[in-house]
Each structure stands twice: as structure tokens, then as C-alpha cells.
Simulated scan of single mutants.
Amino acid sequence: MMTHKVALFVTCLVDLMRPRIGFAAIRALEAAGCEVVVPEGQTCCGQPALNSGDRDHAVALAKQTIAALEPYEAVVAPSGSCAGTIRCHYPELFEHDAAWLPRAQAVAGKTFEIMAYLDEVCGWRPEGVSLDAKATYHDSCSGLRELGIKAQPRRLLKSVAGLSFAPLQGEETCCGFGGTFCVKYPSISNAIVGEKADAIDATGADLLLAGDLGCLMNMAGKLNRKGSKVRAFHAIELIAGMGDGPAIGEEA
């Protein structure tokens, strides 16, 4: 098995709200034969600033992130939105900066969403992982539309023994989170996630899976408020054999 030295870009939400996703990412990457490093210089990728029009702070955070990540063979993130920011938007940020553009392009070109990296680059499948449950899957907007994350998590999850799937109506439809969108337009966001929660409940699934913690927190919160029994997990938690722990929103 070829050893890949990868930098784990943990993401702000994972670091602050659900660290076990980071540990699950490390477990899965190491099982796939990777040597994992968590660069200490990483903070936020700058996506909230970029989406809010604060270009100066977005550029400053992007420079800090590039400097922290460029020494490594590959960069892997358990988030399609953060990986999409680095891979798709960093080169745009430095389009007219001759010094930083090649550095941004180099880091962008070796940045991957974790499930795409495990599936496409490593060609890995989890072994000895089982969970007797029915799951449904939500495709998060940035991962799906910027990075094409669709089949990869499903291929990996098929190797989890005992896990069955129920189709989700509108699986590619936004959950209403949208980063700062849910803060700026709470009534619209709530209406969108309300429809999503009803669709999730209608599947009869035990578990809701997705690849972005922001989306999962939004949907898990709505499901909890409406009294649903569906429990939410990041897909990498199940893939890494950590699907028997507390669900999102259940942590002490």
C-alpha cells in the first residue's frame, strides 16, 4: 500500500463543535495508508468573510492557510464547503497577484474533500465496519456543485455491513443553512430546513448522513425541535467505525 502524507484541514466547525469528526477523519485516512499531519498554523479558510464580501480578511486568511498547507503532499478536509473554498476560490482571490497566484493554485490543486480522497485517490474501502441501521443521505451544496461529491460517499458507505439506505426526496436540495445565509435570512432558512426535515422523516430512516457539519447541525436542530427520532452523523464517522457514539446534538 502506497503511503500518502496528508495535511488534515480540520475546519472551524469541526474543531469547535464536533471534534470527533476530525478524529474519525484521521482514523479513516490512517486505515487507508496515509500519514496524517494536523498543521498548527491552520485556522479558518476564510469562507465566511469571502461570502460576506469582506475580501481583505478573506485574502489574509487565505494567505495564512496557504502558508500552513503548502509543505504537504495533499490536503484533505471533512467538508465540501471548505475544500471547495480552497480548491475553487483561492485561485480567484489571487487572480491578479503574481506572487500568490501560483501558491494558491498549487494548494488548490492538491486539496480534496475527504470522501473523494479516500475513494478516488486511495481507492480504499472500510473493512470490518458494521452498523445495523437504515440511513438516508443529504448532498450538501458546495461539495455537490463545486467538487462533484455524490457517488464517492455512497461507494464508501456500501462497505459498512448492516447499513441500508432509504432514498431522500430532494436529496440535492439545499437544507437552508448556507453559512451566513441562515443568520441573514432566518425565516427563509427555517422554511427550507422545515421542508427538508419533513422529507427526512418521510424516509423512515434511523440516521441522516451528510458530508458537511454546518448542514448537519442545521438539519439535526430542526429534526430535534420537531420531535424526530432521526439521528444525524457525518458520513466519515460511520466510515471510520464511529457511528455508535452520540449523534450530532446529543453531545454532553
Rank of each mutant, 00 (worst) to 15 (best):
I188Y: 11
T111V: 02
D119N: 12
L168R: 06
Q105N: 06
A135E: 10
Y185V: 02
A108L: 02
E146A: 05
S159H: 14
G211S: 13
L101K: 14
D139A: 10
L213C: 05
C182Y: 12
P126I: 01
A220T: 10
A98Y: 06
G109I: 03
G214E: 04
E172S: 07
M219V: 12
L223F: 03
A210W: 02
D119K: 08
Q152P: 08
F177Q: 10
Y137P: 09
W124L: 03
G211R: 00
D206G: 13
E172R: 15
R154G: 04
L131M: 12
Y117F: 15
G143F: 00
V193C: 01
A135V: 10
C215H: 08
G143Y: 00
T136C: 13
G148E: 05
G214H: 08
G227I: 08
F94G: 00
H96N: 14
S164T: 15
G204H: 15
E92K: 15
C174K: 06
C215P: 09
E113K: 08
Q152T: 05
G123K: 11
R155P: 02
A99R: 12
G176I: 04
V107L: 06
S130Y: 04
L93H: 03
L163V: 08
G176A: 07
V183A: 10
T111H: 07
M217Q: 14
S140T: 15
S159A: 15
A151C: 04
G179N: 07
E195W: 12
G211Q: 03
G221K: 09
A151L: 09
A202Q: 14
A202H: 14
H138L: 10
A116Q: 15
A166E: 15
D119S: 11
F112I: 00
D198V: 11
S189P: 08
L118N: 03
S159C: 07
A166G: 09
P153A: 04
R155I: 02
A205L: 13
K150I: 00
G148N: 11
P167K: 08
L209R: 02
L209D: 06
I114F: 03
G109Y: 11
M219G: 01
E146P: 01
D132Q: 15
E195N: 14
E92P: 01
E95K: 13
S130Q: 15
S142G: 01
G227F: 12
A98P: 13
V160P: 11
E113P: 07
R225G: 06
G227H: 13
P102D: 07
A202L: 11
R125Y: 07
C215K: 02
G162M: 11
G194I: 03
G170V: 05
R225L: 11
E171Q: 13
E172A: 12
L131W: 02
C175D: 10
G204P: 14
V160G: 02
G109E: 10
R155W: 03
S189T: 04
E95W: 06
P126N: 01
R125L: 11
V160A: 04
N224Q: 13
A166P: 12
L208V: 09
E113D: 09
A151M: 08
S140I: 00
D212R: 00
S189M: 07
V107Q: 06
L208W: 09
I192Q: 07
G179R: 10
G143E: 04
L101E: 08
E171H: 13
S140R: 00
G123M: 10
A210H: 11
A210V: 05
N218P: 10
